[in-house]
Amino acid sequence: MNTTRISFIAAPALMGAYGVVRLIDRTSRLGWTVGHLLMLAGLFLFALVIVGLRQTAPGRTASVFAGLGLIGLAASIAQIGIDIVVGLLARDAADKEHMFHQIQQVPGVTPVVYTVVPILFYVGLLGLTVTAAVVTARVVPWWTPVLVLAGTVAAAASLDFIPAAGILYVLALTAPAVRHAQRAPHAIA
């Protein structure tokens, strides 16, 4: 089975799983760590999703969106990595808050890792699905970018909606996963 095709489903499923763990146990060190490790794995798999969408929707526009998505993804991975390390090192919630405050006081860290650059992941993902649905011979259904947008809005509205966002992304990316499988059936698993 193709790793990229699996990633189209596994990446958003892991994101949703992070959201579920977060809702169940957001205070213990174990819950924090397990949840963030699930999200980290999902983010790494989203790199394969972006590359797979880029292959499905070739062209300069898709390349730009793929680049933006990968840059945003790198920032998101850095953010989750910091969260994991701080969660493991902090003695308690107050210490965790203090450590985050110290990290965010470093010039450039907040916009690059927490606020501005991570948004590029969602811009890239949405742009790639729009390109694949509208510009590039409609290689994915029209509802793919609609569901990606709905998932993004849900997650942005509240972190408590991340499980719903994960489900919406799974539904959105099922058709591109099938399309990718049809275009590259002999890819390395």
Rank of each mutant, 00 (worst) to 15 (best):
M1G: 11
N2L: 05
I6Y: 14
F8M: 09
I9W: 07
I9K: 01
P12K: 00
M15C: 07
G16L: 03
A17D: 03
G19A: 11
R22I: 02
R22D: 12
R26A: 15
T27K: 13
S28R: 11
R29V: 15
L30K: 11
L30W: 13
L30Y: 13
L30T: 15
W32G: 01
T33K: 01
T33G: 08
T33L: 11
G35I: 06
H36S: 14
L37P: 00
L38W: 00
L38M: 14
L40S: 01
L40H: 03
L40C: 04
G42Q: 03
G42D: 06
F44Y: 13
A47E: 06
L48Y: 15
I50V: 12
R54E: 08
R54K: 12
Q55I: 02
Q55H: 12
A57F: 03
A57M: 09
A57S: 12
R60F: 10
A62K: 02
V64W: 12
F65M: 11
A66C: 02
G67C: 10
L68K: 00
G69K: 00
G69T: 01
L70C: 02
L70S: 09
G72C: 06
L73C: 04
A74S: 14
I77H: 01
A78G: 07
A78C: 11
Q79E: 12
I80M: 02
G81V: 05
I84F: 04
V85Q: 09
L88I: 10
A90K: 04
R91C: 03
D92P: 04
D92H: 09
D95A: 14
E97C: 04
H98T: 15
M99R: 12
M99E: 14
M99L: 15
F100Y: 15
F100T: 03
Q102V: 12
Q102S: 13
I103W: 10
Q105F: 03
Q105I: 01
Q105C: 07
V106H: 01
V106Y: 08
V109W: 07
V109H: 05
T110I: 13
T110Q: 14
T110K: 13
Y114T: 13
V116F: 13
V116R: 05
L120M: 13
F121D: 00
Y122R: 01
Y122L: 10
V123C: 10
V123W: 11
A132F: 03
V135L: 15
A137R: 12
R138H: 14
V140F: 08
W143R: 08
V146T: 13
V146Q: 04
V148G: 00
L149W: 10
A150C: 08
A150W: 08
G151M: 06
G151N: 02
T152P: 07
V153N: 10
V153K: 05
A154W: 03
A154M: 09
A155L: 02
A155W: 00
A155N: 01
A156N: 13
A157I: 08
S158Y: 12
L159P: 09
D160Q: 09
F161W: 15
F161H: 14
I162R: 05
A164S: 14
A165C: 11
G166C: 09
Y169P: 01
A172P: 10
L173A: 01
T174H: 11
P176L: 04
A177M: 05
R179M: 03
H180W: 15
A181Y: 04
A184H: 15
H186L: 14
I188A: 14
